[in-house]
Amino acid sequence: MSVFPFLIAMALFVFGMWVFSIADVVPGFEAIVFFGGIVCVSLSLAIPFNVLGRRESGV
């Protein structure tokens, strides 16, 4: 796993966790903000599972 995609995935994961934590503070948009956190965490897991797995499979 190269460093740059790992840093992107880790940043998305941490940002998604932070968005989860502020979801109850945003009045009227709790569900939208929480769903945004779910999307960020899902994307952070999709990077190593799909993108990096295909690129490094020939090694």
Rank of each mutant, 00 (worst) to 15 (best):
M1F: 11
M1A: 05
M1V: 07
S2P: 14
F4I: 09
P5G: 01
L7V: 10
I8L: 11
A9P: 06
A9Y: 00
A11D: 08
A11I: 11
L12M: 09
L12A: 03
F13I: 14
F13S: 11
V14T: 13
V14N: 12
G16I: 02
M17H: 08
M17F: 12
M17G: 12
W18N: 12
W18G: 14
W18T: 09
V19Y: 04
V19N: 03
V19C: 02
V19P: 02
F20E: 01
S21Q: 12
S21Y: 10
S21P: 02
I22N: 05
I22C: 10
I22E: 15
A23I: 04
A23R: 11
A23T: 12
D24C: 06
D24M: 08
V25A: 07
V26N: 08
V26G: 09
P27H: 04
P27Q: 08
P27T: 10
F29H: 14
F29Y: 15
I32L: 11
I32T: 05
V33N: 01
V33D: 02
V33M: 01
V33P: 02
V33T: 02
F35R: 06
F35L: 05
G36H: 06
G36S: 10
G37E: 08
G37Q: 10
V39S: 02
V39E: 08
V39K: 03
C40R: 02
V41D: 01
V41E: 04
S42W: 11
L43F: 06
L43I: 06
S44I: 01
S44D: 00
L45Y: 07
L45P: 00
A46S: 08
A46W: 12
A46N: 06
A46R: 06
A46F: 08
I47F: 02
P48G: 00
F49D: 05
F49N: 02
N50R: 03
N50I: 15
N50V: 15
V51S: 13
V51H: 03
V51G: 01
V51C: 14
L52V: 11
R55T: 11
E56I: 07
G58D: 13
G58W: 10
